[in-house]
Structures are given as C-alpha cells and as structure tokens.
Design a protein around this nucleic acid. Sequence first.
DNA 1: CGTACAGGTCTA
DNA 2: TATCTAGACCTGTACG
Length: 551
Amino acid sequence: MTSVLLRRAAGAVEARQLAPDGVLAEVTRLDAARLPSFVREREAARPRWVWDDTTRWYPGLLAAGIRVERCTDLRLCHAVLRRSPFVDQSRLRGDDVAGWDALQPIAAPEPALFPLDDPADALDPGAEHDRQQAALAASPQRRRLGLLLAAESSGALAAAEMTHAGLPWRADVHDRLLTELLGPRPAAGRRPVVLDRLLPAIRAAFGAPALNPDSPGDLLRTLQAAGLPVTDTRSWTLEQLDHPGIPPLLEYRKLLRLLQANGWSWLGTWVRDGRFRSYFLPGGVVTGRWGSSGGGALSVPTQLRPAAVADEGWRFVVADVAQLEPRVLAGMSADTAMAKAARASDLYQGMVDSGAVAARSDAKLGMLGAMYGGTRGESGRMVALMTREYPRAVGLVEQAARAGERGEVVHTLLGRGSPVPGGAWAGTLDGDEPPEPGGSTEERDRHRRAWGRFTRNFVVQGTGAEWALCWLADLRNRLWRLGTSGTVSDRPHLVFFLHDEVVVHTPAELADEVSAAVRAAAAGAGRLLFGSFPVDFPLEVSVVGSWADAG
DNA sequence: CGTACAGGTCTA
DNA sequence: TATCTAGACCTGTACG
C-alpha cells in the first residue's frame, strides 16, 4: 500500500508519496486551497494518509465533502509507542521528542484552514514517521502493536466524522422535557418555578429559614443541627435517612442538577442545527478509552435520551456489548472455564448455569470485585469464589495488581503501557526521591494499594477499549460501503460512541443491513484480538427512532 | 478579580 | 452486609 505524507509548509502543503517499501516516489507542492481536490483524486487509490494529527487535517477535508479510508495519526501513535513496553525507546530518540510528547489535539478548528503559531509546525512529520516505523519493525510484538496503531488512527478518523456529523438532537423535545420537570424556561437571572416552590418546603422541614441547599457546608451543618448522623451530603447517604425534609431536598437537588448540567443553557451552547456537537478525544484516557470535550458527551443522562431522534426517513441502530470487560478478561487470560460461561448472552447467568455461583448477583459482584480490586465484605468473599472457579482469569488481574504495587508498568493485550507511577511511595522504591515530608508508612501503603487497583483495572479496561476500537474501525468501513453515493453524513454513519456502545444514524431502508454490519464487525474484532480462542461478544442491537427506545 | 480545589452527580 | 475502575463538568469556597 502506498502512503502519502502531508505536511504544512509556509502556507502551502507538501505531499510526499511513498511506495510500499517506504521509498520516496513523488513530491508535490500545492496551495492549501487545492488540498481537498488533491486528496479526492488520490483517495481513489486508497492510500494511507500520514499526518501529524487528524484534528488538524481531517475536519477541513470533511467540510469539503471528502472522506478518507485510512490514515496514520503520528500524534496518537507517538503517545502509544512512548509508553509501550513492546518498544525499544531508543528508536524514538530525536530532537523533537518533547514536542511530539506535548502536542495537543485542536478542540475547535479555527475558521482559517490552518491556525497560525501552531506548535505542530515546528515538528518534522517525515522524521517522526521514520522513527515510528523503525520502532515498530524492531518490536518483538510487531503484529499486536501494529494493530493497535492502525486501530488508534482509524479511531481518530471516526471521531472527526462523528463531530462533523453530530448526534441528531431535537431541541423542541428537550425543551418539553425540561418544562415538564422544571416549569417553563425562566427569564434570565430567575430560577425555575418548581425549584422556587421546593425551597421553602425544605427550609421549613429543617427549621432553617436561611438555608442555602446549594452550599455543601451550610447544608451539612443544618442536617447535623436537625440531629441527623451524617458526615457528608451525598444523595446515597441522605436516602438512608428518615426525615420529612429529605424527600423535597433530594427532589430539589435532582432537578437542580438537571438544570445546571443539561438545562436550557446546555441546549443553547451545544445543540446547533438539530445536532449535539461535542468533541470525541481518542486516546484521551490513559487506559485507551476515549475522552470527550464539550457538553459532557460521556454522561448524557438517560433521562434526556428521548431528545435524540433520528431524521425523517432515518433510524438509529443502537448496539452495545453485554459485559465487555469480563469477556475480554476471559480471552486475554485464555481462561476456558470463563469463556464457556461467556458463551451465554448473559455471562453472569452463564456462571450460575455452570454451577460456579448460586446467584447472578453473586457472579456480578465477584467479577466487578476481581476487576476493581474489591476486598471487603460480600465483594471480597465472592472474589475468593471467582479465584477458585476461574484461576487463570483472576490470576491475570492479581498479577497486574502486584506488579503495580511494586511500581512496575503493566500493559494491555496489544501493548498499551500503563503510566509510570509518580509520587513519594514510588520514589522510595528506587530511592531517587525522598519520602514526602510527613508521609507516613500507612499513607504510602495506601497509595501503593490504590495504584495496584489502578493497574489491575488498566489491563482489563484498556484491552476492552482495544476491542471496542477494532469494532468501531471495522464498522466505520462497512457503513461506508453500505451507502452508494454521497459523503459521510449521506450514508449510514456513526454519531455516538461510549466505551461499549455505538449509535449509527442510517436511512431507514438500510437499518437491517446496518444491524448485520454491527454484528459482523464485533465478530471480527473478537477474532483480531483473540484469534480462534472461543470467546463470544454478543450484542444487543435495536433499530429505533429515538435513542431512548433502545435496549 | 482569577485560579485551584472540594464536593457532588451523571456516564460506562 | 457499600465507600472498588475510568471520565466530564457544575457550583461554592478558599486563597493569593
């Protein structure tokens, strides 16, 4: 496959075409305004586009109606390679390593095609590409690492396309939901009538006429003065209490939260032209999960999902994986007993049916405890049971926890490395950092165990993210091929992705084919990561008019 | 007056 | 019979 490396050069663009063996075949210099037509012409041969950072190149191409099939995102690949234990770090050495380390994605593309004063312009993408290729070629885990880099780059394309398309969002439906719960939209500077009605009831119940429930300190003092035995004011704590002031207080806080997080001002800020537009950030989380920026895309309340409505004549295909992380753990540890339980569409029920545990809730508690590091109470007892039934799977996360406690780096199946621990407790391991002044032994042990819980979870959450990335990358190409003409948003396309769930917006007549594509991509992701090892990733797939109707 | 942090609540 | 993983983002409060 040929590659085309793009770089900005003083208001123009330089395109270097590389033959499959990496030899430079052709250099083209073109005016930045000519870039879209250049990419459109060359894309017919399906090259791999190599560029410093997808957020700096792809939004402009998408705006010009151009979609590309594959790319290498040097920023994201650099970040993976720099932390991977599968890489000989000396291969990445160069003058501008610090520059690549520090390079940030662009969250909101500026109106100009390329922003001025971009730190990316000081970096040489050609040299970085050569270093990355050399590091990959020398890796003892070339296949896995190569797969991870390709998946990460594909994710960057998918993320840019999702931002470009946006999630269909009906402002009128959202406004109706808010009005039903809070009353009509208040004038600027006023509060919704429902909150104004609840406030005196709360103050009266606690005999505190000046109470401001928005102030955590004020609220805690008032609750304690009313004789309630609390040390925090979390909803979970308050729900345990029997006092006439509690129900209106919880109601008040629930509605206030809705107003502040996803009220009318959210609607005005994040919904334009019938689309919720936020930025997905591939690799935004150390484990490899995506982060997001803008509008809280990672926590869209289920309460508001009725407002996500497909266009006229279009549908949503919503798909999620049941119990992704335990399945991934079964696969990466090659635990055949757990994989057998995972053959059922409900893994926890599969554990009950095989006689491993008595109840589904026990299986769930035990697995979550094993993956998160639960030791106490019922969770700890169930973890012990899991260890007996699934020694390979539990052994894998136990080893990751012990390694983390020793300050070592752990890695996912495809080779994403965990961060090196910082802070006083880790410094004492190598003796190159003095213990924190006032830091007691117990405090250091607490940090050590907390880091062990993090590395324990890292291997599972991170490998789960790799599975999801492979799923997404394959699905993206299948969706494109299902369409016959037009650009990304004219064909079936991704509009939302959240760890183990995708939403596809598709012309209604293609919805069944999209459902099949979603399933085929999931099966493909399982084979890519685990080969012929028999672990299933069953999906729940719904074809709906509104996101709220899925599941 | 702007920034940092704590506390809270939503998501998988 | 829980306080165990990862995030985003809001407000109030303390601090310089």
